[in-house]
Design a protein around this nucleic acid. Structure first.
Lengths: 233, 233
DNA sequence: AGTACAATCATTGTATACAAAATGCAATTA
DNA sequence: TAATTGCATTTTGTATACAATGATTGTACT
């Protein structure tokens, strides 16, 4: 197994935060796989630090739900089950709708303009058919709406909940059949917000989540099937 | 200053978790006051453990938003500002409404019965005029609704958000003029849920939060005024 | 051959030691 | 007197050492 968990050494940040960001990214990109154990010494050696910052980083990952702790056995990367994903999306559905509503009240003219550009940017991104580009454009667009609420607690929660899905976002975005729908869904949200139509905005945000849910759940079922089959051999 | 942060030594739990619970409780009850610095050695000495579990507990408190980290300066108990409380309540409003709606779909007959009893229990509790008793009855009632959603992520989030208000809950509950309204608000939520009326249930939950918001914000303003005045002397 | 038990090894939990940075205070100077 | 510099102290950040627990392997006995 080739392991090179690259740390982007931000000289001023405490090691625990560098480690935290590194491990989180590794989990979200799938470099550290669900179920994989996080052995403190191994990680410490790989990253060239002692166990202390590793442990403190793991405590935070624990609270973020990205790892599960088993007493006296350490941490392992959290499995994303269909149930847990449904739970996350059920909450996100409500919070994304709240974001859309609040954005109607609080979005600034500058943000409106950026949101419009982000919609166009997303449409152009789909034409490249490059999943990374599309995913980035998608994140950028949603981030504008979330930021427009001006509610830091809400921003933090949404970011955390979104994280849980990043591993599946790619699969979702690669499906080119969905691209036109995605563009439409984004436009619908955008239009509702600039028209200050809270109800429509909330409804559009919910619909957007519902569509993702259907797709990602299917994705997970397939994966779990594959795993089950694989284990039998 | 008399400090005796009692640890309830659960022999099987890792020290970091015992410390975490101890510190959290101390913060929520006001034993550790907003703005107060958390010096690792002091805490370690007080609780009779080394710095290691203290530090790991602080990492978790940090992610829960109960302490703020200042780099190379350590942790201090988070200030609750009017702004941060408004932000928390804005999110809770949406999530409590979601809880009420989900409860309409998923509550079991057993839970319905317990909810009914909890309403009665709360009414009896108000008659004692003892804030602790009333607060406990209130928590118990809301917990039934939250649990009825069956969504573990949602349960965790609501608990965390509720935490942020515990310091002010007491003040809120001591106001006897509000007791009858509280009883009515609870009944309204209960009635809507057993009638499976999602809209009414959500509206009642939101109203309940809105009323709390008005009161608690007033409370905070007074407190901040007092502090400002105090500092001048 | 299979099972039970013991010894060993791996790994976490906790404590301590050391390094680096920040803070406060005093002394010195303009 | 006010400001600034330098030193001492405090406190965090990181590493390492030690203890305790859990897993694993090997061996002996049935």
């Amino acid at each position: 197994m080739e392991d090179h968990l690259e740390m982007t050494m931000d000289e001023l940040l405490p090691l625990r935060d560098v480690v935290f960001n590194t491990l989180r990214k590794a989990i979200l990109t799938g470099e550290l796989k669900p179920g994989e154990r996080l052995l403190e010494i191994h990680l410490a050696n790989r990253l060239g630090v002692s166990r202390t910052p590793i442990r403190e980083a793991i405590r935070k990952l624990e609270l973020e739900g990205l790892v599960n702790m088993i007493p006296r056995r350490g941490a392992e990367v959290a499995q994303i089950t269909e149930k847990s994903l449904r739970e996350v999306l059920e909450v996100r559905r409500a919070l994304d709708a709240l974001c859309a509503e609040l954005a109607c009240d609080r979005i600034t003219p500058e943000e409106e303009e950026r949101l419009k550009q982000a919609c166009d940017e997303f449409e152009r991104a789909t034409e490249t058919k490059d999943a990374t580009t599309i995913a980035a454009a998608d994140v950028a667009l949603h981030d504008i709406i979330v930021q427009a609420t001006g509610n830091r607690r809400l921003i933090q929660l949404i970011n955390n909940l979104s994280e849980q899905m990043y591993r599946y976002r790619f699969e979702y975005i690669k499906d080119e059949n969905r691209h036109d729908n995605l563009i439409d869904e984004h436009r619908m949200i955008y239009e509702s917000i600039i028209r200050r139509d809270k109800e429509k905005a909330a409804a559009a945000a919910k619909l957007h989540i519902d569509n993702q849910e259907r797709f990602v759940i299917r994705q997970i079922s397939l994966e779990q099937e594959r795993n089950a089959h694989h284990k039998k051999m």
